[in-house]
Amino acid sequence: MHGPVLVSWLLAALTATSGAYCLSRLGRTPCAADAGAGRGHAHESDAAEALMGLGMAAMALAGAAVPAVLWVWLFGFPAVLFLLAAARDRTGRGHRLHHAVGGLAMTYMALAMAAAPAHGHHHGASTGAPLLTGALLLYFGGYSLWAGSHLLAAPGGQVSGSLRTAGLPRACRLAMGLGMFAMLLTM
């Protein structure tokens, strides 16, 4: 990521906190929002979101200092597994595809950072393919709006003022969607 240092640190703090929370949920009962998908899918989702949150924090701070091949294995391999799982099983397909898109986006950003010149990144200079970056920005911007609207809407259609059992995981998903959007925006 190339952008203001403060933004990188704030993004790292936000995504690391979200990732740590998802990691802590692995040993617990799935929240009400994920219970419909079944315990196995909820834990799969928690593991994927923990990996994504902690990985986004590491990429925001370390970025190009880590070899691209490590980022590719860390995010590309699980993305392919999610794609295969979504093709094989209809249960939780949308969530698995979302995790696959996230993993592939992280892989794309790592490869774009590796291909960028090591020195002299000027403001306004972009890395990666503009069309792909734009499509990913649209996806994660839309996902963030969707996640935010689901965070605010209570089952009765009223705005929820508290973060109940289902609210905090939704807030983490919103934070990670916004984090991904911010990382793509600074490419």
Rank of each mutant, 00 (worst) to 15 (best):
M1I: 05
G3R: 09
P4T: 01
V5T: 13
L6F: 06
V7T: 14
V7G: 07
S8Q: 14
L10E: 00
L10P: 01
L10H: 01
L11H: 03
G27M: 09
R28A: 15
R28P: 00
P30D: 02
C31I: 08
A32P: 09
G36D: 15
H43A: 11
E44T: 15
A48C: 13
A60W: 01
L61V: 15
G63V: 03
A64Q: 13
V66Y: 02
A68F: 02
A68Y: 02
V69H: 09
L74C: 13
L74M: 13
F75V: 00
L83F: 04
L83Y: 01
A85L: 12
A87Q: 11
A87P: 08
R88F: 01
R88E: 08
R88D: 09
R90T: 11
T91W: 07
G94K: 12
R96Q: 07
R96I: 07
H99L: 10
V101L: 13
T107Y: 00
Y108M: 09
M109F: 04
M109C: 07
L111A: 11
L111C: 11
L111W: 02
A115S: 12
A116L: 00
H119T: 12
H121D: 10
S126I: 12
T127S: 09
T127F: 08
P130D: 01
P130L: 03
P130T: 02
L131P: 00
Y139E: 01
F140L: 03
S144H: 07
S144I: 06
L145M: 12
A147F: 00
G148K: 00
H150W: 10
L151K: 10
L151Q: 09
V159S: 15
G161L: 15
S162D: 14
S162A: 15
L163Y: 09
R170G: 08
C172R: 00
L174V: 04
A175F: 07
G177I: 02
A182E: 04
L184W: 03
L185K: 11
M187H: 15
M187A: 14
